[in-house]
Nucleic acid binder design. Structure first.
Lengths: 335, 335
DNA sequence: GCAAAAATTTGGATCGATCTAATTTTAAAT
DNA sequence: ATTTAAAATTAGATCGATCCAAATTTTTGC
């Protein structure tokens, strides 16, 4: 195992100088740098980050804890994060909790022990504030995304779910649909509640009764969503619009419609939520509420970066607005 | 920042003993352990992994480099890996190259510097053996999955692509289809070549000419695949079967069929490749070649674990067989 | 109760980098 | 040429754990 010392010996300089070269310091003269780099090459030197981290108490590592890696929203979020953190030399350590509280606790502890410079987290449903307490105590910058723990003293970047869902439902109502249903989530009860409330808001504002509109929850799989859509249409044949908890469920719903021989967008309109990349590639292209996951990731990373700079900034929580993205899965109802 | 020393002071024992407690050593007496644990609690102690790693040259970290996190195959692979590595106390550091060679090089270097205990990698198309050389030199266990670099001196766990694709095509031929097409990948040329050869094999063995069967490549998006399917059906109306490079493309193809007003499985049969979890949830449930991604992940992790134990084991390469999973997207052609 | 064996505990060296403050070298100004 | 300022380099302490061999305590057998 070759170390700084070996390289220093070959290059005929001190360990400190080699260290400076490793870190790309502007302090070393060009000539020396060349010499050292050649020596590194010759020695087959590999930088030891553990040693560096120990001394400098900076790991250039950021943790990301998410509940479901297979949901493309989080992949997009990650890509936004990296766009901001990469140039800062930070590398992102991703942990997928799979919506399990135990796993989340495990990763929280592990990342703490790794001394990440910061943490970005979308908490498992029902997480108490207390599990984040060690981060506050150790003064490790932490940003919540998409899911927020009530009253937790941390920055937050997410969207206004209630308003977004209201707009989604309103879009269908405005197109003339009079019987619409909400296809909700079994996985994320708290967010589901918000979005369902938004759905109800829209209906009430038009003077209709939410109670007359079907609502059904399902897991986030195509099969479950397809089944849910079929159930709704079987129960209330006159339904012409589906407001879905997210795009995954919307995708599944369209599959269910196809299976019934119906034409999504023509016979029954479908609106999703999230606007993942696949939404515009879907057939028919999916009308959905865009949350701008990439952008949100960039914003969350920025919040984190700023808090790393100034730990004493006041806590900031931002709810951005989801934007309606009209595509071909929604049309006025057939006469 | 509290350290072992602080805890030791409170508990009235030596640093070494506290260290043993941290690592769950059976050497310490029960009474002492209790005392130390209480002291840790009281001091709010957080284990410092960087310090530990430096001294012990074991990080209990395994790197995973994959080309596309949004492809569920890799999510399933990861879950298989974790199933084996978690009980060993190893944590997986996932890096998504997004099929970019530069990013791959960057992560390879970074993980080396982090001193991961091992690496599992699905290389970017066209990766030369040389970029893995440092891992051989540093004697870091490395296992390739799904994609193999010719002649690289590392363990490999993957599947027989050519045979798998042959079986996929053969399934359709056996059902009676006489005009079938191959919907290939633009993203992964080497694997695509293998699978296309398998497709041709099946056709030749039946005495037909592969040249008469359409073949078209596309990116891994629903939109691109839907378009490709439509192009094929426009060019050769008599096509009744589609063999797809993977499930994503197969999904897109069925969407294209729906869009044409055709009924996938009934009018045109579709076969995928991978058998991701969504395949059985698709509508119609997708006939596909199962590669058992989870199982493959478990196997790759086992290879890695074994090599960690015994670095001098001979190199092992295993090509398992993809298994045909017949579902409703394939039927005999209509008369 | 005592010697021998087994079980626990421990001090001090060590891992490989960074930090600090001081020293040496080079360049600029007189 | 000499002084001064700026640039580049460096020695030695340090980060917080683990390792090792030795010291201590407890248990066992007779």
């Amino acid at each position: 195992m070759t170390t700084l010392k070996d390289v220093a010996l070959i290059a005929g300089v001190s360990r400190a100088t080699v260290s400076l070269v490793c870190r790309g310091s502007p302090l070393v003269a060009d000539k020396t740098r060349k010499k050292v780099e050649a020596a590194m090459q010759e020695a087959g030197y590999v930088y030891n980050r553990n040693a560096a981290n120990l001394r400098s108490s900076q790991t250039n590592t950021v943790g990301l804890i998410i509940p479901d890696i297979s949901n493309p929203v989080y992949a997009e979020l990650l890509s936004g994060l990296e766009e901001v953190l990469d140039p800062l030399g930070k590398v992102v350590f991703v942990a997928d909790t799979n919506e399990l509280f135990e796993r989340q606790s495990h990763f929280l502890q592990r990342l703490l022990e790794m001394r990440v410079d910061g943490l970005i987290i979308s908490t498992v449903s029902g997480t108490p504030t207390s599990v984040l307490e060690p981060y506050r105590r150790e003064n490790i910058p932490l940003v919540q995304v998409l899911r927020m723990i009530d009253g937790a003293p941390f920055d937050y970047a997410g969207i206004n779910n209630r308003l977004g869902a209201r707009q989604a439902a309103d879009h269908l109502l405005q197109l003339g649909h009079r019987q619409i249903a909400f296809l909700g989530s079994l996985i994320s009860p708290s967010v589901n509640r918000e979005r369902y409330m938004g759905f109800c808001d829209a209906i009430e504002r038009r003077g209709f009764s939410p109670a007359s509109m079907p609502m059904i929850t399902c897991r986030h799989t195509y099969g479950a969503a397809a089944q849910a859509a079929k159930t709704i249409l079987a129960d209330s044949r006159e339904t012409t619009g589906l407001v879905c908890f997210n795009d995954i469920i919307a995708f599944g719903a369209t599959l269910g419609l196809y299976e019934l021989g119906l034409s999504p967008g023509y016979d029954v309109s479908v609106v999703g939520f999230d606007d993942v990349e696949a939404a515009c590639n879907w057939r028919p292209p999916l009308t959905t509420m865009s949350i701008g996951a990439r952008q949100l990731g960039k914003y969350a990373a920025t919040l984190l970066a700023q808090r790393m700079e100034q730990p004493d900034l006041p806590v900031r929580t931002q709810f951005s607005e989801a934007k309606l993205q009209v595509r071909e899965s929604s049309f006025p109802p057939r006469k």
